[in-house]
Lab assay of single mutants.
Amino acid sequence: SKDTIRINGIDIDVKDLHEEWKRLVEEALKRGDEELAIELLERALKE
Score class of each variant (00 low, 15 high):
Gly9Ile: 03
Leu45Asp: 05
Leu29Phe: 04
Val25Gln: 00
Asp13Thr: 09
Glu20Ser: 10
Arg23Tyr: 12
Ser1Gln: 11
Ile10Asp: 04
Arg6Val: 10
Glu20Pro: 08
Glu19His: 09
Lys2Phe: 12
Glu19Asp: 13
Gly9Leu: 04
Leu40Ile: 13
Leu45Pro: 04
Leu17Ser: 01
Asp33Asn: 13
Lys15His: 12
Leu45Gln: 11
Glu42Met: 07
Asp3Ile: 10
Leu24Asn: 02
Glu42Asn: 13
Asp33Val: 02
Val25Leu: 13
Glu42Cys: 14
Leu36Asp: 04
Lys46Asn: 10
Glu47Phe: 01
Lys2Gln: 14
His18Val: 06
Glu27Ala: 10
Gly9Ser: 05
Asp16Tyr: 15
Arg31Glu: 10
Ile5Ser: 02
Arg23Asn: 13
Leu41Ser: 01
Glu20Leu: 06
Arg31Trp: 11
Leu36Thr: 08
Asp16Val: 08
Glu19Arg: 02
Glu42Asp: 11
Val25Cys: 02
Ala28Lys: 00
Asp33Cys: 07
Arg6Asn: 11
Asp33Gly: 04
Lys46His: 08
Thr4Pro: 05
Leu17Tyr: 04
Glu39Ala: 13
Leu40Cys: 03
Val25Pro: 00
Ser1Phe: 10
Arg43Leu: 10
Lys15Gln: 11
Ile7Arg: 02
Arg23His: 10
Ala28Tyr: 05
Thr4Ser: 09
Arg31Leu: 10
Ser1Asn: 15
Lys30Ser: 15
Lys46Ala: 13
Leu29Pro: 00
Glu34His: 15
Leu24Ser: 03
Glu26Trp: 10
Lys22Pro: 07
Glu27Thr: 03
Val14Met: 12
Leu41Tyr: 06
Glu47Ser: 08
Leu41Pro: 00
Arg31Cys: 09
Ile38Tyr: 13
Ala28Asp: 00
Lys15Asn: 09
Glu26Lys: 11
Leu24Met: 11
Trp21Met: 15
Asp16Pro: 05
Lys30Cys: 02
His18Tyr: 06
Arg6Ile: 07
Asn8Lys: 14
Arg43Asn: 06
Glu42Ala: 07
Ser1Cys: 12
Leu36Gly: 12
Ile10Pro: 01
Gly32Tyr: 03
Leu40Thr: 04
Arg31Gln: 11
Lys30Asn: 11
Asp11His: 09
Trp21Ile: 15
Ile12Thr: 04
Glu47Trp: 01
Leu45Asn: 11
Glu27Arg: 03
Glu34Tyr: 15
Asp33Thr: 02
Lys2Arg: 13
Ile12Leu: 07
Ala44Phe: 13
Leu40Arg: 02
Ala28Trp: 02
Asp13Gln: 09
Leu45Thr: 08
Lys30Tyr: 09
Asp16His: 14
Lys15Ser: 14
Glu34Met: 14
Asp13Phe: 08
Ile7Met: 05
Leu40Trp: 04
Arg23Ser: 13
Lys22Asn: 05
Arg6Pro: 03
Glu20Tyr: 14
Asp16Gly: 15
Glu19Tyr: 09
